[in-house]
């Protein structure tokens, strides 16, 4: 861990350096343009200072984004519509609902696929094919149609999240439930274990490592689903809505702060599952 800390820090510092350079490069046109209209000559230092402090820059500098995030999280009341915490919570709630639904559906399908040969042969190819369909393209339709029959709010977004997160769970769980080898299955048979017992005592426990790996992929996917699901609702609330509103009004700083918030959220979700994974596997003696 310590060995890779220095390289990671170097890379992160390099990213920030490129970010600042990129801000100079992309925003300088506007800075010169402004100065030209005021008949002023800009020195290099003035130009750099300007590119890092514009109101609507093409690429906001990291410290501008950081200030915006600070302003909209710490300085605002959480219930305020301008608070990023409020919008993150909206997105997070539909992410979590969709994730739970998707995981449930995924595990149920996986059990069906493992125990029923007909289902294995007919459903599995469609599960895989379903992911080559760009489901996010369906998002506007799902939202509008569900809205038309009176379902609105959390559930439509959660359904999109569910669709994105069930796939990794199905694939991982099918692999996991099939991971006990013939020797272990034979042992269960010599103990005269019923199929239910084999499931609870052998198949399910040995699928846990696979489950957690796919949960990590699934939770990241369901966050993407929730964000995209917020786009067609007309930018009411949530991180996706902040992105859309920002792009309508050219508020780049707002877009970037929503983006960073989404990234932080994704990192937190994945880290949480990672922690649960470590704790569970440790207690099960699998890690």
């Amino acid at each position: 861990m310590m060995r890779s800390l220095l390289p990671i820090l170097t890379v992160v510092v390099a990213i920030f350096a490129f970010w600042y350079l990129g801000a100079i490069w992309l925003n300088s046109d506007w800075a010169y343009d402004k100065a030209g209209r005021l008949d002023k000559e800009l020195s290099f230092a003035e130009m750099v200072a300007d590119t890092w402090s514009q109101d609507k820059p093409k690429l906001p500098a990291p410290h501008q984004v950081a200030t915006e995030i600070w302003d909209t999280t710490i300085d605002k009341r959480i219930t305020s519509k301008r608070s990023l915490v409020y919008h993150s919570w909206i997105t997070l709630s539909s992410t979590l609902l969709g994730f739970v639904l998707g995981t449930g559906l995924g595990i149920a399908l996986a059990i069906g696929i493992v125990y029923n040969r007909t289902m294995d042969m007919s459903v599995m190819p469609w599960v895989i094919a379903s992911q080559t369909i760009p489901i996010l393209a369906l998002a506007p339709m799902i939202i509008v149609v569900l809205n038309a029959i009176g379902i609105s709010g959390l559930l439509p977004k959660a359904i999109i999240s569910m669709y994105l997160s069930f796939f990794p769970v199905v694939v991982g769980m099918v692999k996991g439930l099939r991971s006990p080898d013939q020797m272990q299955l034979d042992q269960m048979r010599t103990w005269n274990a019923s199929p239910t017992q084999t499931f609870w005592r052998l198949r399910l426990p040995s699928s846990m490592p696979y489950l957690f790996t796919s949960l990590k992929v699934g939770v990241a996917a369901s966050l993407v689903g929730a964000i995209v699901g917020e786009l067609p609702t007309g930018a009411v609330a949530g991180l996706g809505a902040r992105l859309l509103a920002g792009s309508y009004y050219g508020q780049t700083i707002q877009i970037w702060s929503a983006l960073i918030m989404a990234a932080v959220l994704a990192a937190l979700l994945v880290a949480t599952i990672g922690a649960v994974q470590r704790a569970t596997l440790k207690r099960m003696g699998l890690s």
Partner: peptide, 11 residues
Amino acid sequence: AALPIIGMAPI
């Protein structure tokens, strides 16, 4: 790779 990169779209 785990981030919601799709959010870069408006930018």
